[in-house]
Design a protein around this nucleic acid. Structure first.
Length: 264
DNA sequence: CGTGGCTCCTGGCGGC
DNA sequence: TGCCGCCAGGAGCCAC
């Protein structure tokens, strides 16, 4: 589930906790989480290094080291960061442990093993190698129009595509389309400029609201659909029963009254 | 080349 | 009670 807002709050967590301390040990608990680097090479590169700054792009967290290269986290569906001090209190699903000179241990945890850790020499090079589009909070309106005009298919599939814009996942796509009053299966070619503008604005508003709420759903406004995902509740705006369908293989929630299907 | 569908992965949960 | 199958969902891969 870590989409842009969750990764932003992990970035801020990383900045508060793990910058400026020397790395004294590294244990890869499960090698499956390694993307483009072996456990031995990762250890060799990181031992003695210091994390000096953190960046987020899309759903990726980049941490710059004192040696110039970056450690990159991708959290997949269930990835997260935690720390422990007491060896007896290692979190569940710990896949990698980084120990600092302060005695603090940083944990990359990931129940479903979709998360990955990479090394990168540059931000631009890594972003390019993944084929990521512009960050969802950085793209300007005219670029958004120009890029979406080149796309076909359903609006939800396009918003989910990280090569279109980076950072929006399943839950926030549903929220953006709910707040925009647009059916998730609407073909993008059928969206007029007014509707595209509504979607563009809601990308910024929904993600911005989530970031400000530290990605804690219970703090989202009452008229947000994502607060009650999976809970079989009615539409917070019109009290119609929320429907669940499949769009590009993803569970999709929408209000059939607020988000009417458009037929060509 | 763009798009859609399948697959990976583990655990929670509903149904029988 | 215990087991089966579905669902969760980010993204890589492949077929068309």
């Amino acid at each position: 589930m870590p989409e842009l807002p969750e990764v932003q709050s992990l970035k801020e967590y990383f900045e508060r906790k793990f910058l400026g301390k020397e790395i004294t040990d590294l244990k890869v608990v499960n090698k499956k989480i390694l993307g483009n680097v072996s456990a031995s090479r990762l250890k060799e590169k990181l031992m003695g290094a210091i994390f000096i700054s953190a960046y987020r792009y899309g759903k990726y967290l980049f941490v710059k080291t004192s040696r110039g290269f970056f450690l990159v986290f991708h959290f997949g569906m269930t990835g997260s960061l935690e720390y422990f001090k007491d060896e007896n209190k290692i979190p569940y699903y710990t896949r990698m442990i980084l120990t600092f000179s302060s005695g603090l241990n940083l944990v990359f945890k990931c129940m479903r093993m979709f998360g990955r850790i990479y090394l990168a020499d540059s931000l631009a090079g890594f972003i390019n190698s993944k084929g990521l589009g512009p960050d969802a909070l950085e793209i300007n309106k005219s670029d958004f129009y120009n890029l979406i005009r080149k796309r076909k298919g359903k609006i939800k599939s396009v918003l989910l595509d990280q090569s279109f814009i980076a950072g929006v996942g399943n839950i926030y796509t549903d929220e953006i389309l709910f707040q925009s009053g647009i059916h998730p299966e609407t073909r993008v070619g059928l969206l007029d400029k007014r509707k595209l503008e509504r979607i563009y604005n809601n990308i910024g508003i929904v993600l911005g609201t989530a970031v400000k709420s530290n990605a804690e759903m219970e703090r989202y406004p009452g008229f947000y659909l994502s607060r009650n995902r999976n809970k079989n509740v009615n539409c917070p705006k019109c009290n119609t029963k929320i429907r669940r369908i499949n769009v590009s293989g993803r569970g999709t929630y929408f209000c059939p009254r607020c988000q009417r299907f458009v037929i060509s």
